[in-house]
Amino acid sequence: MLTPPSMRLILLVLSLLAAWPVQAAPPELLASLDALHARRAEASALKELEAALKKELQASPEDYELIWRSSRLMTWQGDVAEDSRLKKVLGRQAWDMCERGVKVAPDRVECHYFAAVGIGTYSQAVGIMKALGEGLEGKFNERLDAAIRINPDFDLGAPLVVKGRYHYELPWPKRDLTESTKLLEKATGKFPQNLRAHYYLAETLLAADKAGKAKESIAKVTQGSGAYDPAEAKLVQGRAKKVEAKIEEELK
Protein backbone atom coordinates (compact mmCIF):
# COMPACT_ATOMS: atom_id res chain seq x y z
CA MET A 1 0.00 0.00 0.00
CA LEU A 2 1.34 3.43 -0.96
CA THR A 3 2.05 5.95 1.78
CA PRO A 4 -0.02 9.16 1.34
CA PRO A 5 2.07 12.27 0.44
CA SER A 6 1.22 13.96 3.74
CA MET A 7 2.41 10.93 5.69
CA ARG A 8 5.63 10.75 3.65
CA LEU A 9 6.27 14.41 4.49
CA ILE A 10 5.73 13.77 8.20
CA LEU A 11 8.08 10.78 8.11
CA LEU A 12 10.73 12.87 6.32
CA VAL A 13 10.50 15.64 8.92
CA LEU A 14 10.74 13.12 11.77
CA SER A 15 13.81 11.48 10.23
CA LEU A 16 15.51 14.84 9.83
CA LEU A 17 14.74 15.78 13.42
CA ALA A 18 16.12 12.45 14.62
CA ALA A 19 19.37 13.08 12.76
CA TRP A 20 19.72 16.67 13.99
CA PRO A 21 22.17 17.09 16.88
CA VAL A 22 20.53 17.97 20.19
CA GLN A 23 21.89 21.31 21.36
CA ALA A 24 20.26 22.80 24.40
CA ALA A 25 23.20 24.89 25.58
CA PRO A 26 22.94 28.57 24.60
CA PRO A 27 25.87 30.23 22.78
CA GLU A 28 26.79 32.34 25.80
CA LEU A 29 27.21 29.21 27.94
CA LEU A 30 29.42 27.58 25.33
CA ALA A 31 31.51 30.75 25.09
CA SER A 32 31.91 30.72 28.88
CA LEU A 33 33.00 27.06 28.85
CA ASP A 34 35.53 27.75 26.09
CA ALA A 35 36.92 30.71 28.02
CA LEU A 36 37.40 28.51 31.07
CA HIS A 37 39.04 25.85 28.92
CA ALA A 38 41.53 28.42 27.67
CA ARG A 39 42.50 28.98 31.33
CA ARG A 40 42.57 25.27 32.22
CA ALA A 41 46.14 25.46 33.50
CA GLU A 42 44.75 27.47 36.42
CA ALA A 43 43.42 25.20 39.17
CA SER A 44 40.44 27.46 39.90
CA ALA A 45 39.37 27.65 36.25
CA LEU A 46 39.78 23.91 35.83
CA LYS A 47 37.62 23.21 38.88
CA GLU A 48 34.95 25.65 37.68
CA LEU A 49 34.96 24.09 34.20
CA GLU A 50 34.58 20.57 35.59
CA ALA A 51 31.66 21.62 37.78
CA ALA A 52 29.93 23.53 34.99
CA LEU A 53 30.20 20.68 32.48
CA LYS A 54 28.96 18.15 35.03
CA LYS A 55 25.97 20.31 35.92
CA GLU A 56 25.01 21.08 32.33
CA LEU A 57 25.40 17.48 31.18
CA GLN A 58 23.15 16.27 33.98
CA ALA A 59 20.47 18.61 32.65
CA SER A 60 21.15 17.92 28.94
CA PRO A 61 22.96 14.55 28.59
CA GLU A 62 22.47 14.41 24.81
CA ASP A 63 23.72 17.92 24.07
CA TYR A 64 26.52 17.35 21.54
CA GLU A 65 28.26 20.65 22.28
CA LEU A 66 28.54 19.72 25.96
CA ILE A 67 29.56 16.14 25.21
CA TRP A 68 32.56 16.96 23.07
CA ARG A 69 33.72 19.75 25.37
CA SER A 70 33.60 17.34 28.30
CA SER A 71 35.67 14.82 26.36
CA ARG A 72 38.11 17.58 25.37
CA LEU A 73 38.67 18.37 29.04
CA MET A 74 39.17 14.70 29.94
CA THR A 75 41.76 14.21 27.20
CA TRP A 76 43.67 17.22 28.51
CA GLN A 77 43.56 15.88 32.05
CA GLY A 78 44.65 12.47 30.79
CA ASP A 79 47.53 14.00 28.89
CA VAL A 80 48.92 15.81 31.92
CA ALA A 81 48.21 13.00 34.41
CA GLU A 82 51.37 11.36 35.74
CA ASP A 83 49.61 8.41 37.40
CA SER A 84 49.01 5.70 34.78
CA ARG A 85 45.86 4.52 36.59
CA LEU A 86 44.34 7.99 36.42
CA LYS A 87 45.43 8.34 32.79
CA LYS A 88 43.72 5.05 31.99
CA VAL A 89 40.46 6.13 33.66
CA LEU A 90 40.41 9.54 31.99
CA GLY A 91 41.23 8.08 28.58
CA ARG A 92 38.40 5.59 28.88
CA GLN A 93 35.96 8.26 30.08
CA ALA A 94 36.86 10.60 27.21
CA TRP A 95 36.46 7.76 24.74
CA ASP A 96 33.09 6.66 26.14
CA MET A 97 31.82 10.23 26.31
CA CYS A 98 32.53 10.86 22.65
CA GLU A 99 31.14 7.51 21.55
CA ARG A 100 27.87 8.98 22.80
CA GLY A 101 28.58 12.09 20.80
CA VAL A 102 29.27 10.17 17.59
CA LYS A 103 25.80 8.64 17.87
CA VAL A 104 24.25 12.07 18.34
CA ALA A 105 26.16 13.78 15.50
CA PRO A 106 28.05 11.26 13.32
CA ASP A 107 29.02 13.89 10.74
CA ARG A 108 30.73 16.23 13.21
CA VAL A 109 34.49 16.06 13.61
CA GLU A 110 34.90 16.77 17.32
CA CYS A 111 33.77 13.50 18.85
CA HIS A 112 35.47 11.32 16.26
CA TYR A 113 38.69 13.15 17.11
CA PHE A 114 38.38 13.17 20.90
CA ALA A 115 37.24 9.55 20.98
CA ALA A 116 40.45 8.66 19.13
CA VAL A 117 42.54 10.74 21.54
CA GLY A 118 40.79 9.05 24.46
CA ILE A 119 41.65 5.64 23.04
CA GLY A 120 45.23 6.78 22.56
CA THR A 121 45.47 8.02 26.14
CA TYR A 122 44.02 4.76 27.44
CA SER A 123 46.48 2.79 25.27
CA GLN A 124 49.47 4.72 26.60
CA ALA A 125 48.34 4.02 30.15
CA VAL A 126 47.93 0.26 29.72
CA GLY A 127 50.89 -0.10 27.33
CA ILE A 128 50.91 -0.12 23.54
CA MET A 129 51.43 -3.87 23.23
CA LYS A 130 48.49 -4.63 25.52
CA ALA A 131 46.34 -2.11 23.65
CA LEU A 132 47.20 -3.79 20.36
CA GLY A 133 46.29 -7.12 21.93
CA GLU A 134 42.92 -5.70 22.98
CA GLY A 135 42.21 -4.69 19.38
CA LEU A 136 42.19 -0.97 20.10
CA GLU A 137 44.23 -0.04 17.03
CA GLY A 138 41.26 -0.61 14.75
CA LYS A 139 38.91 1.41 16.96
CA PHE A 140 41.47 4.21 17.20
CA ASN A 141 41.99 4.41 13.46
CA GLU A 142 38.27 4.19 12.74
CA ARG A 143 37.61 7.30 14.77
CA LEU A 144 40.75 9.20 13.76
CA ASP A 145 40.37 8.48 10.05
CA ALA A 146 36.78 9.69 10.26
CA ALA A 147 37.99 12.93 11.85
CA ILE A 148 40.58 13.38 9.10
CA ARG A 149 37.96 12.70 6.44
CA ILE A 150 35.50 15.19 7.95
CA ASN A 151 37.94 18.00 8.76
CA PRO A 152 41.73 17.44 8.91
CA ASP A 153 42.19 21.13 9.82
CA PHE A 154 40.22 20.86 13.06
CA ASP A 155 42.03 22.45 16.01
CA LEU A 156 45.09 23.52 13.98
CA GLY A 157 45.44 20.21 12.17
CA ALA A 158 45.12 18.10 15.31
CA PRO A 159 43.79 14.97 13.52
CA LEU A 160 46.88 14.93 11.26
CA VAL A 161 49.16 15.53 14.24
CA VAL A 162 47.70 12.60 16.15
CA LYS A 163 47.93 10.35 13.09
CA GLY A 164 51.56 11.34 12.64
CA ARG A 165 52.25 10.56 16.28
CA TYR A 166 50.49 7.23 15.92
CA HIS A 167 52.99 6.12 13.27
CA TYR A 168 55.82 7.14 15.62
CA GLU A 169 54.41 5.42 18.71
CA LEU A 170 53.84 2.02 17.12
CA PRO A 171 56.41 -0.67 17.94
CA TRP A 172 58.58 -2.30 15.29
CA PRO A 173 57.77 -3.50 12.64
CA LYS A 174 54.58 -1.40 12.49
CA ARG A 175 56.39 1.85 13.21
CA ASP A 176 56.60 4.15 10.16
CA LEU A 177 58.81 7.20 10.65
CA THR A 178 58.50 8.21 7.01
CA GLU A 179 54.71 8.45 7.22
CA SER A 180 54.97 10.16 10.61
CA THR A 181 57.28 12.79 9.14
CA LYS A 182 55.03 13.30 6.13
CA LEU A 183 51.90 13.93 8.21
CA LEU A 184 53.60 16.12 10.78
CA GLU A 185 55.30 18.23 8.13
CA LYS A 186 51.92 18.68 6.48
CA ALA A 187 50.46 19.90 9.77
CA THR A 188 53.36 22.23 10.60
CA GLY A 189 53.35 23.60 7.08
CA LYS A 190 49.70 24.63 7.32
CA PHE A 191 49.65 25.50 11.01
CA PRO A 192 53.15 26.69 12.01
CA GLN A 193 51.80 28.00 15.32
CA ASN A 194 50.96 24.44 16.47
CA LEU A 195 53.85 23.75 18.86
CA ARG A 196 52.82 20.16 19.56
CA ALA A 197 53.15 19.36 15.86
CA HIS A 198 56.72 20.72 15.82
CA TYR A 199 57.51 18.85 19.05
CA TYR A 200 56.29 15.53 17.67
CA LEU A 201 58.10 16.18 14.39
CA ALA A 202 61.36 16.78 16.27
CA GLU A 203 61.02 13.43 18.05
CA THR A 204 60.24 11.63 14.80
CA LEU A 205 63.22 13.20 13.03
CA LEU A 206 65.52 12.34 15.93
CA ALA A 207 64.36 8.71 15.81
CA ALA A 208 65.00 8.75 12.05
CA ASP A 209 68.64 9.79 12.64
CA LYS A 210 68.03 13.32 11.42
CA ALA A 211 69.22 15.22 14.46
CA GLY A 212 70.06 18.35 12.49
CA LYS A 213 66.51 18.71 11.20
CA ALA A 214 65.18 17.72 14.61
CA LYS A 215 67.08 20.64 16.11
CA GLU A 216 65.35 23.01 13.71
CA SER A 217 61.96 21.65 14.69
CA ILE A 218 62.53 21.77 18.43
CA ALA A 219 63.75 25.37 18.15
CA LYS A 220 60.36 26.28 16.72
CA VAL A 221 58.83 24.87 19.90
CA THR A 222 61.13 26.51 22.43
CA GLN A 223 61.12 29.85 20.62
CA GLY A 224 57.50 29.76 19.45
CA SER A 225 54.62 31.89 20.64
CA GLY A 226 52.05 30.34 22.94
CA ALA A 227 49.38 32.93 22.19
CA TYR A 228 47.21 30.42 20.33
CA ASP A 229 46.73 28.32 23.49
CA PRO A 230 48.83 29.32 26.54
CA ALA A 231 48.10 26.16 28.55
CA GLU A 232 48.98 23.86 25.67
CA ALA A 233 52.09 25.85 24.75
CA LYS A 234 53.41 25.82 28.31
CA LEU A 235 52.93 22.06 28.54
CA VAL A 236 54.61 21.32 25.22
CA GLN A 237 57.50 23.73 25.77
CA GLY A 238 58.18 22.11 29.13
CA ARG A 239 58.32 18.67 27.55
CA ALA A 240 60.47 19.94 24.71
CA LYS A 241 63.41 20.57 27.04
CA LYS A 242 64.17 16.85 27.37
CA VAL A 243 63.99 16.33 23.61
CA GLU A 244 66.21 19.35 23.04
CA ALA A 245 68.82 17.86 25.38
CA LYS A 246 68.70 14.51 23.54
CA ILE A 247 69.18 16.26 20.22
CA GLU A 248 72.18 18.22 21.51
CA GLU A 249 73.68 15.01 22.85
CA GLU A 250 73.18 13.33 19.49
CA LEU A 251 74.88 16.21 17.66
CA LYS A 252 78.04 16.12 19.79
Rank of each mutant, 00 (worst) to 15 (best):
E65N: 10
I148T: 04
V80S: 02
P27W: 09
A197N: 06
S70L: 03
I10W: 01
S225I: 04
R149K: 13
R8P: 06
Q193W: 11
Y122F: 14
P152Y: 01
E137Q: 07
E48D: 12
T121P: 15
P27Y: 04
V13G: 02
A158K: 00
S15D: 05
K190G: 10
R39Q: 13
A227L: 00
S44E: 02
P4M: 01
A197M: 10
P26T: 15
A233L: 05
E65C: 04
A214C: 05
Q193R: 14
T178C: 07
L235R: 00
E65Y: 06
Y122R: 08
L12T: 13
D176T: 03
E185W: 00
T178M: 07
E134W: 11
V104M: 09
G164K: 05
Q58E: 14
P192E: 15
T181N: 12
A245D: 03
L30A: 05
K47Y: 06
G138L: 12
A219C: 09
E185I: 03
A187G: 13
K215C: 07
P26W: 15
K182M: 02
Q223E: 09
L86G: 04
T75K: 08
P173G: 03
W76P: 05
S123G: 03
K182Y: 08
L9G: 08
I67A: 11
A94E: 11
A131R: 13
L53D: 04
S71M: 08
C111R: 01
I218L: 08
W76A: 02
P173A: 07
H198T: 15
E48H: 05
E232D: 12
F191P: 10
R69L: 06
W76K: 00
E134A: 13
K241H: 06
P5H: 08
N141P: 15
M129T: 14
D63M: 05
D79N: 14
K213P: 08
R40Q: 03
I119W: 01
P21C: 07
E216R: 01
A43M: 11
K55N: 06
E203F: 08
M7F: 03
Q124S: 13
G133N: 14
A202F: 11
R196M: 02
I218P: 04
M74A: 03
L90V: 12
I10H: 08
V22M: 11
A25Q: 02
K182A: 09
A146E: 11
K210C: 12
G101L: 06
V89A: 06
R149I: 11
M7N: 06
S15Y: 04
E99T: 14
E42V: 09
E42H: 07
L136M: 15
V126C: 14
K213I: 09
E249G: 15
L2Q: 09
A147K: 08
L2E: 08
D209F: 00
M129N: 15
Q23H: 09
P27A: 04
M97L: 09
A31G: 05
A214T: 01
A105W: 05
L73M: 03
D176N: 15
S6H: 09
Q77K: 01
